[in-house]
Amino acid sequence: MEQSKSDQVRVDIEYCTVCNSKPQCIELSRLIKQRVPGAHVKCTTGRRGSFEVQINDTLVHSKLGSLAFPDYEEVIANVIAARQGQPVKKVKEQPITDCVLQ
Rank of each mutant, 00 (worst) to 15 (best):
Q102A: 06
A68Q: 15
R83K: 15
S6D: 14
V75W: 05
R30A: 09
A77I: 03
V79Q: 10
K89Q: 14
I32W: 07
Y15T: 03
I76D: 14
I80C: 05
I55S: 06
I76P: 11
C99M: 10
K22D: 07
A81R: 13
E93S: 15
V41W: 00
V91A: 04
N20V: 01
K42L: 11
I32D: 06
C19S: 09
I13P: 14
I32Q: 06
R47C: 01
M1R: 06
T17D: 12
T44A: 07
H40V: 00
F69S: 09
R47W: 01
E14F: 06
Q86K: 15
K33W: 00
K5A: 13
H61V: 02
N78L: 08
Y15A: 02
S66P: 03
D57F: 10
K22Y: 11
P95Q: 13
G65D: 15
C16A: 09
S6G: 01
R10T: 15
A81T: 13
N56I: 11
P37R: 14
C25I: 00
I32M: 08
K42E: 10
P37Y: 09
Q54S: 12
S6Q: 13
I80Y: 04
E27P: 01
E2I: 00
Q8V: 15
S29M: 06
S29R: 11
C16E: 10
D57V: 07
E74I: 04
D12N: 12
I80L: 14
F51T: 03
G65I: 07
V53I: 10
P37K: 14
H40K: 14
Q54C: 08
Y72R: 11
T97A: 13
R10A: 10
E74D: 11
G46P: 04
V91F: 04
S62P: 12
L59H: 10
R83V: 01
S50W: 02
L28S: 05
R47T: 03
Q24I: 00
F69V: 02
K5N: 11
P87W: 07
Q54G: 00
S4E: 09
E27R: 13
Q34F: 09
V41T: 10
V100S: 08
V11R: 14
D57H: 14
R83F: 00
Y72E: 15
R10M: 05
V75A: 06
P23D: 04
C19P: 03
T58Y: 00
H40G: 00
P37H: 11
S62V: 12
D7W: 06
A39G: 07
S66W: 04
S21W: 15
C19W: 03
E93T: 09
K92N: 15
Q24E: 12
V11S: 13
P87G: 08
L59T: 14
G85Y: 04
Q8R: 13
K33E: 12
D12G: 10
V41L: 03
L64R: 11
C16L: 07
Q34R: 14
V18W: 15
C25R: 05
S66Q: 12
F51C: 02
N56F: 08
K89L: 07
E27Q: 13
A39V: 08
L101N: 00
E52G: 02
E52D: 12
A81I: 14
D7K: 14
E93H: 09
E74C: 08
